[in-house]
């Protein structure tokens, strides 16, 4: 038994529901905090980022067009899949962060519960955030939150699973699709999460996961004209965050700055925009008109 050669996993990107290597052909070594080499991860290029944005864009309308109930069931399914592989994720998390295995398992369980939490939000946030407005005229007027579209996420660097779920779940629960740049030094749990999502009935392209250098890839996401939102909570370098925000300003993206946490509703609101629809309400003649 002990002589058996272990089959090591190749950590690839997750783009458009597929698991490609970087189009650049590059990879980079990933090690645990104590220096143990863990694996090579694909080193995403700007073209991978571009492909991921295209995949996210293609998936966005159909995803937003699904019923909220179905989106909730798919998120719940992802939680089920993650639960089934909790052991594997605990191990990967412990390797990545240096946490002890028991603590790592606790974090995985929190991540699963977080997914379940957001699964339950999909068919509720619109009624919590939106509503009917009592305008001073004969009009039906209704406001509802709608997805921004494509959200680019720089995932938290030191919280590679739970922080990632916290970034992804509220964005996709509200009908957005995401391009996630995983933790640069701890990308493996994120790349494995792609395998969970791929088996959760989540349509390809709704979540796209890239591993690589933040400073290399993030600027291309920040400036990409077909990206609508930018989550910078995972950018540790303040100067980089400022320059990414400035790049995002070119097409007036919605930006979430680093360092600001929020409750679930706050995060759900972050990646939605309100649409207000007016319609005349009136039928009968002879009310004397408005004069």
């Amino acid at each position: 038994m002990s002589d058996r050669l272990r089959v090591k996993k190749t950590y690839k990107l997750y783009v458009g529901g597929k698991f490609p290597r970087s189009e650049s052909g590059r990879s980079y070594p990933v090690a645990s905090p104590d220096g143990t080499e863990l694996a090579n991860a694909a080193l995403a290029s700007r073209k991978d980022a571009r492909d991921a944005v295209a995949a996210a864009r293609n998936a966005q309308r159909p995803w937003a067009g699904q019923t909220a109930y179905l989106r909730g069931q798919i998120l719940y399914r992802a939680a089920e899949m993650l639960e089934g592989r909790a052991g594997q994720f605990a191990e990967e998390l412990a390797d990545a962060t240096g946490a002890d295995p028991h603590e790592a398992l606790g974090t995985v369980e929190q991540a699963i519960d977080r997914l379940v939490h957001y699964a339950g939000w999909t068919d509720k946030y619109t009624s919590v955030l939106g509503g009917a407005n009592p305008v001073a005229g004969p009009y039906f007027n209704h406001t509802t939150p709608e997805p921004l579209g494509v959200v680019a996420v720089v995932a938290p660097q030191d919280d590679p699973l739970l922080g990632l779920i916290d970034a992804i779940a509220p964005a996709i629960a509200t009908g957005n699709t995401v391009v996630v740049l995983a933790s640069e030094s701890k990308p493996l749990p994120a790349l494995s999460l792609g395998e969970v999502l791929a088996t959760s009935d989540l349509p390809g392209g709704v979540v796209n996961l890239l591993s690589g250098k933040t400073a290399e890839v993030a600027p291309h996401l920040a400036s990409h004209a077909d990206v609508n939102g930018l989550d910078l909570r995972g950018v540790a370098d303040a100067d980089l965050a400022a320059s990414l925000e400035a790049a995002a300003a070119e097409t007036l993206k919605v930006v979430r700055r680093p360092g600001k946490d929020g409750n679930a509703l706050d995060l759900l609101r972050q990646w939605t925009e309100y649409k207000t629809v007016w319609h005349p309400a009136g039928m009968a003649a002879g009310a004397g008109g408005a004069y």
């Binding site: 305008v135 005229g137 406001t143 007016w278």
Partner: peptide, 11 residues
Amino acid sequence: NTFNQFDAASP
């Protein structure tokens, strides 16, 4: 079926 309507209560 209307246009350019505005109201303080409407975002």
